[in-house]
Design a protein around this nucleic acid. Sequence first.
DNA 1: TATTGTTATACTCTATAACTATA
DNA 2: TATAGTTATAGAGTATAACAATA
Lengths: 176, 176
Amino acid sequence: MATKEHCAELARQLRVVMGVGREVGRALPPETPPSTVAVLTVLGRYGEMRMSRLAEYLDIDISVTSRHVAYLAERGWIDRTPDALDKRSRLLRLNPHGEKVLAASSDRAAEVLAAHLSDWSDDDVDLLSGLLDRLRLSFGDCRPKAHAPHARTAHAAHPATTAGTGTAHTPRTHAN
Amino acid sequence: MATKEHCAELARQLRVVMGVGREVGRALPPETPPSTVAVLTVLGRYGEMRMSRLAEYLDIDISVTSRHVAYLAERGWIDRTPDALDKRSRLLRLNPHGEKVLAASSDRAAEVLAAHLSDWSDDDVDLLSGLLDRLRLSFGDCRPKAHAPHARTAHAAHPATTAGTGTAHTPRTHAN
DNA sequence: TATTGTTATACTCTATAACTATA
DNA sequence: TATAGTTATAGAGTATAACAATA
């Protein structure tokens, strides 16, 4: 059971690390800004899903998500197939073109990171990645978006093509 | 030496964790938004410093820093004393009022974090904090802002009053 | 009546550029 | 001439609210 003092230090580091995140983002080309890469990444890792679920993974409002997705759709990086179970929503899925763009973005980000992490071992990096993922999970498993978390989970079941070391699969929900 | 594949995963997690950071930020009161807390935190931990150094720690442009600092100054949370060595700059320092505000903000952030980290041990939290700090250092020690890194370091030497588990002391510099 | 997603609008945060004062 | 900091302006990113279509 983590005490508040230790959490305070983590909170500080959390804010600092957002600076690192921004810095990595600055290295991305203008046509794939950080927000776009975030969408690509979630769709690449967790596969086909609807808008609302994507918004939860990204931890941003669905209205914002909608615009990011529109951007990807305009470029032809995703396909939107009608959801047979609910005509109000469409299922979003990375197409081959989108997967290429994701791979390139991911590569660029990894490059920037690797350039600075020359004195890190792969084990160190994995340890940090794992802890960060655990942190995400700890923030995700509570506050389940109010409505029924029914069988829709089936859609996000397969880890998708561009998937990485893939770990857990629960999106976070944010304040309304 | 970390390989690109492992760094790619870290890059993903880095982006995700920014969502956690945003979520913590949402819990802060309107008069101390995340950007303000960031300034308070740096001044609280590293003590008196000039604008340019603060900007480096925050990893944001000095123009942005200037406005954040102006905000703190308006509320009377910091003191700005003239720098005897260079009349162009002033030394920024948290005053007692500012330290109280920082303590409250830090507390609030820690609360939010602790609420979600019930199944984390203090050791886990410390491990993550430590790795994040190391990450910051790895990004900070290169690219030294072009100009001479002369004896100005003396100013940031003392760990300051509100300091936490304080570790290293090198700010990051960002792309121009 | 409630929910999914879209659009319009406003707010926060950051970057770029022009400027002042000092080095 | 170069640097520290300020201010003005613009551009990402996000949130809130009003809306249309469907459940």
